[in-house]
Simulated assay, not measured.
Amino acid sequence: MTGAVLVVTAVGAEADAVRGGARDAVHVSAAGVGPAAAAGGTARLLALAEAAGTPYRAVISAGIAGGFDGRAAVGATVLGVRSIAADLGAESPAGFLPVETLGFGTSVIEADGELLASLTAALPEAVRGDILTLCTVTGSGATAARLARAHPAAVAEAMEGYGVASAATAAAVPFAELRTVSNPVGPRDRASWRIATALAALTKAAAAL
Score class of each variant (00 low, 15 high):
2 T>A: 14
8 V>F: 08
9 T>A: 05
13 A>Q: 12
15 A>G: 01
16 D>M: 00
23 R>G: 15
29 S>E: 15
30 A>G: 05
35 P>K: 10
36 A>S: 04
38 A>G: 02
40 G>Y: 13
43 A>E: 13
45 L>H: 14
50 E>S: 08
55 P>D: 09
57 R>V: 09
67 G>A: 08
68 F>N: 05
71 R>E: 03
74 V>N: 05
80 G>W: 00
86 A>V: 08
87 D>W: 02
88 L>E: 04
91 E>M: 13
92 S>T: 13
94 A>L: 14
94 A>W: 07
98 P>N: 13
98 P>Y: 03
102 L>C: 09
102 L>H: 10
103 G>Q: 02
108 V>T: 15
108 V>F: 08
110 E>C: 04
110 E>P: 00
111 A>T: 14
112 D>K: 09
112 D>E: 03
113 G>D: 07
115 L>V: 10
115 L>N: 04
121 A>L: 05
121 A>P: 04
125 E>H: 08
127 V>E: 08
131 I>F: 06
132 L>D: 02
136 T>N: 01
138 T>Y: 02
138 T>P: 02
140 S>F: 03
143 T>D: 14
147 L>T: 01
150 A>H: 04
151 H>R: 12
157 E>A: 13
159 M>N: 02
160 E>I: 13
161 G>I: 12
171 A>Q: 06
171 A>F: 03
171 A>S: 12
172 A>G: 10
173 V>I: 15
175 F>P: 05
177 E>R: 11
180 T>P: 00
182 S>E: 10
183 N>L: 09
183 N>W: 12
184 P>S: 07
186 G>R: 04
188 R>G: 09
188 R>H: 07
189 D>R: 14
190 R>Q: 09
190 R>H: 10
200 A>M: 11
205 A>M: 03
205 A>R: 13
205 A>I: 08
208 A>Y: 03
